[in-house]
């Protein structure tokens, strides 16, 4: 299925992926009573604060992410992906790491878990990172900075 005017979009795969992400977060919430926030769980796994979950649990979640992606890669026969240069990835990663710790979350904790809870903090955070993400791409495009 495609959306008229947006030949690149994959709405059904997107929706199916989103439902899986929602189920994943629901398993964490209803199973362990915790937020499935990737930045907080990753920080916890490596001993940098973050989630209050047992460190072994944080590791299990983090290890599960590439395992889950691997299942999709194997089932689909490979996924399209283009990545930025090492230097760009390093700069972006550093900024994401600082930002998610200061902002107490990322797309998963604030964007999925917080917004669905109608949390004011998470909604403001989500609107903020969407706005600066959009602005960053727009400015980079205007400057002719092609990163992918």
């Amino acid at each position: 299925m495609t959306i008229p005017g947006f030949p690149e979009a994959a709405p059904l795969a997107g929706l199916a992926g989103g439902i899986l992400i929602g189920l994943a977060a629901a398993v964490m919430l209803l199973g362990l009573g915790r937020i499935a926030g990737v930045s907080g769980l990753a920080a916890k796994a490596v001993g940098l604060g973050g989630s209050g979950i047992a460190r072994s649990g944080a590791w299990m979640f983090v290890v599960g992410l590439p395992l889950g992606a691997l299942i999709v890669v194997l089932a689909s026969g490979g996924l399209e992906a283009s990545f930025a240069s090492p230097r760009t990835l390093a700069i972006a990663g550093l900024v994401v790491g600082i930002g998610t710790r200061l902002g107490s979350g990322c797309t998963s904790g604030h964007g999925v878990c917080g917004v669905s809870r109608l949390s004011g903090r998470s909604t403001v955070a989500t609107l903020t990172f969407m706005a600066t993400g959009i602005a960053t791409v727009a400015i980079m495009n205007a400057l002719g900075l092609e990163v992918l």
């Binding site: 990737v38 992606a69 996924l79 930025a84 998610t100 902002g103 990322c106 955070a125 602005a135």
Partner: peptide, 30 residues
């Protein structure tokens, strides 16, 4: 702190198109 952190995160997200979850999951892709 919340708003500044989220703003920074969004900038990093926009630069390379990766947030924490996909970054870690992509370890098996690239």
């Amino acid at each position: 702190r919340l708003i500044g952190g989220a703003a920074l995160f969004g900038i990093g997200w926009g630069i390379a198109g990766l947030c924490p979850g996909p970054g870690i999951a992509a370890l098996v892709i690239e």
